[in-house]
């Protein structure tokens, strides 16, 4: 058992310090070299906003102009979840209550707050069309509601099976990919939404993304929340 926090040797620290200082000078020069009066891509986005199907420029960039980034982003989230569930042992107690004996005040509060958090998540999803918000913010609130319930001692409902949870985790990515490929049959290229259907397609993708992101965040938290002794028992490791 290592108790003290280990330190690197002096030589390594000196070399790293010199390297980082040099890199810092380069970074500062690069940052200052960006021209002061450039207008970026904001005018281009504003000009084409009407094609995107939504009225908020950040949502338009995320879900339409640069939706390729967002597609890969949800893929990264799903991959990380698969990784965490695998590393957490062969029988991770996905969504067992994290706290066995929860504080009664916390339980009552969580029960009161959870419906409002689901409502707030739905609002954020809808607001993303014309104001700051969108699938990832809505999914974060949904995930927070799940984490709060788990901390307050509420177990996974019986109707949420392990298979069902895995389906919900991946459904956002699957729907997004299906729509991305599907528009190719309408004569476009990958992820090129037809202008008339853009709003509906963006909304469908965002709704399923919200559900998936909520489930992913809850799973990430709960799969790694068990005590170290339990992890050892599950994976048959340690001594």
């Amino acid at each position: 058992m290592a108790s003290a926090v280990p330190e690197s040797p002096r030589g390594v620290r000196l070399a790293a310090g010199a390297l980082c200082a040099g890199f810092g000078v380069l970074l500062v020069r690069a940052v200052l070299a960006i021209p002061e009066d450039h207008s970026g891509l904001a005018p281009v986005v504003a000009e084409r906003l009407v094609d995107s199907g939504v009225k908020h420029p950040v949502t338009a960039v995320l879900l339409n102009f640069r939706s390729y980034d967002t597609l890969l982003e949800i893929a990264v989230l799903v991959l990380a979840t698969i990784g965490v569930l695998s590393v957490a042992g062969s029988h991770p107690r996905v969504w067992a209550p994290v706290a066995e004996e929860a504080d009664p005040v916390l339980s009552a509060l969580a029960r009161l707050l959870a419906p409002f958090m689901v409502l707030a998540s739905g609002y954020l999803l809808w607001a993303g069309e014309h104001a700051p918000g969108g699938a990832f913010q809505a999914g974060a609130v949904l995930g927070a509601a799940g984490v709060l319930l788990a901390l307050a001692g509420y177990a996974r409902p019986a109707w949420v099976t392990k298979f069902g949870l895995r389906v919900v985790i991946s459904v956002g990515f699957i729907v997004f990919l299906a729509i991305a490929v599907g528009v190719m049959f309408l004569g476009g290229v990958l992820l090129e939404y037809p202008r008339d259907y853009a709003k509906a397609l963006v909304l469908i993708v965002e709704t399923w993304l919200t559900v998936s992101i909520g489930a992913i965040l809850v799973s990430l938290f709960i799969a790694s929340a068990s005590p170290i002794e339990e992890l050892r028992a599950r994976t048959g490791s340690g001594r």
């Binding site: 980034d69 982003e73 990264v76 490791s237």
Partner: peptide, 28 residues
């Protein structure tokens, strides 16, 4: 400019993913 904002949003999600996976690996 909305473009850097969208990139930051994407970056936050990737950071959350990598942090969660790194924490699970560290714990293992």
């Amino acid at each position: 400019d909305p473009l850097p904002h969208a990139m930051v949003l994407t970056g936050i999600v990737v950071t959350v993913s990598s942090t969660a996976y790194a924490l699970a690996l560290a714990k293992r």
